[in-house]
């Protein structure tokens, strides 16, 4: 089961996570006991600068976003990263005084882990906001699909198709991009399948509306059946888009719990 939710986050955090993991093992197995750790002021200063930049950009993002969940969730991650960085600075100072300091070593490991965890929280919070953008577009499509019920003339149908088309294209593009980003294979496949179904149903829906409008305008027999067919296609599309919204919000842990 993938540890990181998206390829972007995985690409950023996987390498350093492995290194910290190895360091912790060395530490726990006593491989570093009795060994001097030289001056780490330089590398710690680099981390400090990077934390400062990340938090600055993060705070700018929080100030400009309209996403209230991100405004609420991101600040704790800033604090976690900043506190972890303080531990690293303190550890470097302690090591300068005593290169064999065991507490300093603990601080280094805790600080590194905290940086990793805080950065992961930041990236996940940001990623969840990106997902909410996709979901907003999906919900817009769901809403516009309901307008199919009131299309009763060919002019209405032309307008409806002109409006629905670009929205569907945008939704499809966003979902395809998201699908590529996911590390969880089952979630990718679920998104792919549902989106495929929606794409296939779109022309079917337009056709069903067209038949309904044609029969209704000529007062021919079969209006009810045409209406049922239109409703059936509309409901299938809505169900698939709702499934897409559900899957977009799944995380690896949900899958584990379900399993």
């Amino acid at each position: 089961m993938p540890v990181f939710h998206t390829k972007t986050i995985e690409g950023i955090l996987e390498p350093v996570a492995q290194q910290i993991c190895h360091l912790v093992i060395m530490h726990e197995e006593g491989e570093v006991d009795g060994k001097a750790i030289p001056d780490l002021t330089g590398p710690v200063a680099a981390v400090q600068a990077a934390v400062s930049n990340l938090v600055r950009v993060g705070k700018e993002t929080v100030q400009t976003t309209e996403d209230q969940v991100m405004k609420r969730d991101m600040p704790p991650a800033f604090i976690k990263v900043e506190n972890s960085c303080s531990k690293l600075v303190q550890a470097a100072q302690m090591l300068k005084a005593d290169p064999y300091s065991v507490p300093a070593r603990d601080y280094l490991i805790d600080g590194s882990r905290g940086i990793l965890s805080g950065t992961s929280d930041l990236l996940l919070t940001f990623d969840e906001a990106e997902v909410r953008k996709v979901i907003r577009v999906c919900k817009g499509i769901l809403e516009y699909l309901t307008v199919a019920e009131v299309v009763e003339t060919m002019e209405d149908l032309i307008t409806y198709t002109k409006n629905l088309g670009p929205g569907m294209t945008k939704m499809s593009k966003m979902i395809e991009e998201r699908q590529q980003e996911l590390t969880h294979q089952e979630h990718r496949q679920m998104l792919f399948n549902s989106l495929n179904t929606v794409k296939q149903l779109l022309p079917v829906l337009i056709s069903a509306i067209k038949i309904f409008v044609a029969i209704k305008s000529t007062h021919s027999a079969g209006v009810d059946e045409a209406e049922r067919n239109r409703c059936f296609t509309f409901e299938k599309m809505s169900a698939e888009i709702s499934e897409i919204i559900r899957v977009l919000q799944l995380t690896t842990w949900d899958e584990d719990t379900w399993a």
């Binding site: 390498p15 060395m26 750790i37 780490l40 590398p43 981390v47 950065t119 930041l122 990236l123 940001f126």
Partner: peptide, 29 residues
Amino acid sequence: DAGEMVRQARVLAQATSDLVNAMRSDAEA
């Protein structure tokens, strides 16, 4: 700017990686 957040996170991850490497290499040496 979506990309800027990710860029800065990448820089931080690399800086942390460099720090951990500095700690590990001396320990291993």
